[in-house]
Write a protein that binds this DNA or RNA. Structure first.
Lengths: 234, 234
DNA sequence: TGGCCGGTATATCAACCGCATAAACGCGCG
DNA sequence: CGCGCGTTTATGCGGTTGATATACCGGCCA
């Protein structure tokens, strides 16, 4: 059985110029089960944001190379992900300005780790509710709602096992493109199972039995010989 | 600063026992274009919440007639609307506890009006993105009124324990969609109970005993193996 | 054409894990 | 004290999973 917590590992972008605080944040976040990405400057932050697409931003104001507010505005324009601002400044005006520009929360230094973690949790919790909203995949009679966690065939829901569901979601997220055996095994079973293509065959078979009208001549779940599998695109 | 347009006038429930602060909040909020509803006690608050369905809750901790935390848990179990906590207590533990139980923000006294307004704006802004769903749920003989908190089976109201009620409301709010064990535990028991799935099983069983005609073959309360539960949609 | 072979699909079955249910316990409250 | 409710403990059941075995299918070559 796969690890449940592995599914909800969040990547957090931390923008902080002070090396000491940066280390402190890195350790705390990692200890709490997150994957922190560290940036020292706004430019670096923007790069990482686009590159890694972290779940949220933790931004320390007062960076050397520019105004933190501009980063908030920029990111808010592109994404709905949570932004939490840390700052040494206590002034109400600063807070109001940040919040108005699109920040979701503002935490003044000095703060406790526990409060920081709690506020991160709040932000992520809320985001998860909104996030899976309009992700939907459809080809012919097969329809996959990631939001509802439902898979429909000719309109009526069909029942998948957790593993089959994971597998199908994985394919649906890269619909139309080939996913290699290794990729699928890595994503569904974990890194240790990367070579056991055997598992894949079995469960692909079971998936086809439920999804395909004629499993011997699959219309949705295409096998790419010697490479992997692919979910047909519209 | 411009006012929110008249089209989006928001009703805010303010729970505050100190008359002076209450007046102050009332005036400030009204001046900012909101419609404040005032409550002195938890009972009153609960009543107004069900009655008027305000857009969010602003809760002062330390009320005379009970624990504010319980109100947070109760409301969070029934609704996704924002909860902002005000408190004289500065301790980190208080903050963490509130945030874990489902509060969206925590503002320690003394605070400035502008910051309060900014944080309210953030909460409402975010909420508007999430579309609230219908306040009534019905499938076949099962009918749930989220507004007045009534559950009917074949037309006649049936009695649920507070916990069963919370559980069912939570499911009804996301009717048709799978709710994970973690989500349900977080919403009903709190963030600390996120891993105790056995609580869920037991109380789901009791819910089914009251709701389902044949609990062994549930029609409304569907279990999604390895994932969570789902209230069947029409 | 027929046989071999790598890669792939299906069948069967046992072990295990997650789930449901029952029943006992503890606690607050009238 | 007895009642209602939430928690804890115990136990049986069924679905899911993965191991093993067997059948398939196309390409290649003699």
């Amino acid at each position: 059985m796969m690890n449940a917590s592995a599914a909800s590992v969040h990547t957090l972008l931390v923008v902080e110029d002070d090396a000491q605080i940066r280390d402190f944040l890195q350790l705390s976040l990692r200890a709490a089960g997150y994957v922190p990405l560290l940036a020292r400057t706004l430019a670096e932050a923007l790069q990482l944001w686009q590159d890694k697409q972290p779940a949220m931003l933790i931004l320390d104001l007062g960076l050397p190379d520019g105004d933190g507010l501009s980063l908030i505005k920029t990111l808010r324009a592109r994404s709905d992900r949570p932004i939490l601002v840390l700052s040494a400044r206590q002034s109400e005006q600063d807070k109001v300005q940040c919040l108005n520009q699109g920040a979701d929360d503002y935490l003044a230094k000095p703060f406790g780790v526990d409060e920081l973690l709690a506020r991160i949790r709040v932000a992520l919790r809320r985001m998860e509710r909104m996030q899976l909203r309009d992700q939907r995949y459809q080809v012919e009679a097969l329809q996959i709602d990631l939001a509802d966690g439902l898979v429909r065939l000719h309109g009526e829901a069909l029942h998948l096992s957790p593993l089959e569901y994971k597998l199908l979601m994985q394919l649906a997220q890269h619909a139309g493109r080939v996913m290699t055996h290794r990729q699928l095994l890595q994503a569904v079973w974990g890194a240790e199972y990367v070579d056991d293509t055997h598992y894949l065959r079995i469960h692909m078979g079971r998936l086809r039995a439920k999804i395909e009208r004629d499993p011997a001549a699959p219309r949705y779940l295409i096998t790419e010989l010697g490479i992997g599998y692919r979910l047909a695109a519209s």
